[in-house]
Design a protein around this nucleic acid. Structure first.
Lengths: 130, 130
DNA sequence: CTGGATCCATTTGGATACTG
DNA sequence: CAGTATCCAAATGGATCCAG
């Protein structure tokens, strides 16, 4: 009852939502090696805007996955670090990313196949590739 | 580098997007035990609309994660089943869901704490500036 | 029974500019 | 440096109705 992901009201869904956020996953991976500053995170994670990164970090902080430490210095410095809880997420996340790395080609291939099978008879119209 | 999740152009992101889709995860879990019909899937997975479920299934089919078999019967019957590729996703996904089940309470607790800390003026600042 | 089609509210996330 | 503020485009997902 307490851990049923199929129940829409089960908090497990919350976790899936968090994992579902691609940035969270990358943040965990980045912080796995140790604390990082904001700009370091932004630079490491390609294609994320400051706004979204901040949102992600705040959400993860609320969820107890990481800590945010502000140093009263000039220039300002803020360091993010995984909590033990956050660290415990590392393994499952790595399982996913490893699967991704190993099977990306198969997925791409399947997608190509579907595309060709679908477009063979009458191509013409350029289909927006999602 | 073909397997770098940090590269926005890397196909690995595609996988994360697929996992990120909460329904995909639940579909994999549901089909782990064997093929299922559409309505069975819809009923098992709480809170999903037919439209979205169809979208999810079609996307997963394109990606080679499952097969869609139509029986020429009345009433119509359509069965979905995981491919070997889809089955290989089972392990990593279970890793995530197990983590979720084990740590949901900790996350909820952290969230409650953050809420209270934010709502009450003086919880005796344990940390410098926030 | 299995979805396709349509409409629509809400959310999400990106670009840009600016501040303590 | 580390964000915040604002605006906005696009995508997501739900409700509903209908069709093969």
């Amino acid at each position: 009852m307490r851990g049923d992901p199929f129940d829409p009201n089960c908090p497990t869904r919350l976790i899936l939502d968090r994992i579902g956020d691609k940035w969270s996953v990358l943040v965990v991976l980045t912080l796995s090696d140790g604390p990082r500053r904001f700009s370091r995170l932004r630079d490491t994670i390609g294609g994320v805007t400051p706004k979204v990164l901040t949102q992600t970090l705040r959400a993860m902080e609320r969820d107890g996955l990481l800590t945010r430490q502000v140093f009263a210095e000039v220039p300002p410095r803020v360091e993010y670090a995984l909590t033990p809880l956050g660290h415990s997420l590392r393994r499952p996340i790595e399982a996913i990313t490893e699967w991704a790395q190993e099977n990306v080609e198969a997925v791409i291939a399947a997608r190509e196949r579907a595309l060709h099978a679908d477009a063979s008879p009458a191509p013409a119209a350029p289909h927006p590739v999602r």
